[in-house]
């Protein structure tokens, strides 16, 4: 029986290896390659011994941290702070989503970054960053399903043309809380948002990628057409 155990493990390692690409089973990606890709990030972020806040916060210890809470960094966007309070924790899955397109998680984020569309690139950067986080909860084996699904919306959803008249009716549900005049006391303004940002944000709530429970409940029952209709209406205000 003793010989059977390693062979099972080996099979498992192979499966995981195939799943995340070329990386070894105990890694989430290739940290060496990640370090190279991180040069794209380094104009704003430092990581490692002696890292300090620059345009963006340093990234030491980011795994497992609540968004918007690193000590001494005072330049977070309102949206990121709100997301942190809503319960956004930087898990491997959320970091994957944020790196794919920061707007999926936070509308109005100050992280002005086009995103890494290649899942392997993201995995590699995150493998590199994880070397500077020591939160044991983020050892990948503890999160076997943590490799994020792609959050990119199919092009068809973004191309839908909304019916503004339907949007106006549906919007009456939003304006009970989101003030039409653009005030953002306590609740963010959604008036005049670009349509694409609006569609991305509502789908992120609908798919529970974003944490806010009220928005998850309201967006969860909107169809793709209804989201497009709302986006068309609010963009035109």
């Amino acid at each position: 029986m003793k010989t059977g155990v390693p062979s099972v493990l080996a099979g498992l390692c192979l499966a995981i290896g195939a799943w995340v690409g070329a990386a070894a089973a105990d890694e989430i990606g290739d940290a060496e390659n990640g370090e190279r890709i991180f040069r794209k990030c380094a104009s704003c972020h430092q990581v490692g011994q002696g890292a300090t806040h620059r345009v963006g916060p340093h990234l030491n210890g980011i795994f497992g941290r609540r968004a918007g809470t690193v000590d001494g960094y005072g330049k977070y966007s309102d949206g990121l702070l709100r997301a942190g309070n809503d319960g956004l924790i930087w898990s491997l899955e959320k970091l994957h989503a944020y790196l794919e397109n920061p707007k999926y998680l936070v509308t109005g984020t100050r992280m002005n970054f086009a995103g890494l569309s290649d899942a392997q690139d993201r995995a590699d950067v995150l493998a590199y960053l994880r070397q500077f986080s020591d939160n044991p909860a983020n050892i990948p084996e503890a999160q076997p399903t943590a490799i994020a699904p792609e959050v990119e919306l199919p092009p068809g959803i973004l191309a839908l043309v909304g019916d503004p008249e339907y949007g106006e009716y549906l919007a009456s549900e939003c304006t009970t809380c989101h003030q039409r005049d653009g005030s953002d006391q306590g609740i963010p303004s959604i008036t005049g948002w670009p349509q694409e940002d609006f569609v991305i944000a509502l789908h992120a709530y609908k798919r529970k990628i974003r944490p806010h429970p009220v928005m998850q409940a309201y967006a969860g029952r909107l169809t793709d057409d209804e989201i497009a209709a709302l986006a068309a209406y609010f963009a035109g205000l």
Binding site: G84, T175, C177, Q185
Partner: peptide
Amino acid sequence: ASLRKQTYEESLGWYAGITAD
């Protein structure tokens, strides 16, 4: 506490929103 404070602030926004509505 930060989430509870945010929830309270949300209620202020809602009050302004619904009364305008």
